[in-house]
Amino acid sequence: MTRSAVLGKDLTGLEPLDADQLRLILDTAEPFKEVSERPIKKVPALRGKTIVNLFFEASTRTRISFEFAEKRLSADTVNVAASGSSVSKGETLVDTARNLEAMRIDMVVIRHGASGAAQFLGDRIRSNVVNAGDGKHEHPTQGLLDLLTLRDRFGKLAGLKVAICGDVLHSRVARSNIWGLTKLGAEVGVCGPPTLLPRDVRELGVTVLPRIEDAIAWADALNILRLQLERMQAGFIPSLREYNRVFGVSRERLARAPKDLLIMHPGPMNRGVEIDSDVADGEHSVILPQVTNGVAVRMAVLYLLAGGSPDWHHPGGDHA
């Protein structure tokens, strides 16, 4: 186990981090963007580290993004999916992780359906734990890549107005965004059907924007959340068509905005539900740059967590 000088042992969410730590991760991500543009997209920083990607929920983008980040840092990686593993035979999370640790691993990247799973695991194993999404709690690296993308486009986050639109209630992406943005001085608005907004959302320091038109008039950037299609069966919304009619982000609606809005989406998109195709593919969309930045922030997080005990003034200093 290593305990990072700057981040501690685990990254479970953005809530426990302060503004300096968030800025350090974003600043560290900058040079990692360039690594992915090199002819050999690889640096030896995490050579010899073994990282297990433990995914209890389906994920394509996040798992692949973590895997690229790990491989570009020269770590050795193993992917464990819950289906087809001993998890499906009833093994507990801690037993699974302890068995992996018995094979001498260094880090676990975990995606789990239960809120708090990453923290639970981090408290019980020696390896560094990175939360890749736990239930409705947090998805810190998604929050970080959203912060990085916003900072790239606007140059700063302080004073920026970001509206998070859609199913905020069930969204760990929304929570990580709210923590990260507010700590760095941005204003956050949330917009969605009342059934899909947490009842106490104002306590997080956000503005509630009841209609999508309000969000469009208010914000500098829209972060449009995926509407999980099973929400309709559960009765949170009457129909996908109605959702699109009332809350869908369309070109016509954006045309009435006082300024051009940056368009973000964590993916996977439901085109024609929460976002129309001409918005998703439009000139103000940064949905694909978000994905590119995802690899860079994950490299930064892994690199910072892997650093050993702090000794900034070791003999030789810069010239070692």
Partner: peptide, 19 residues
């Protein structure tokens, strides 16, 4: 920085410069 052989000993450098 990312090619150093002593990441464990010194901890990650705060900010990595441009290459």
């Amino acid at each position: 920085t990312l090619y150093r052989d002593d990441l464990q000993a010194i901890g990650p450098r705060p900010v990595i410069g441009e290459t």
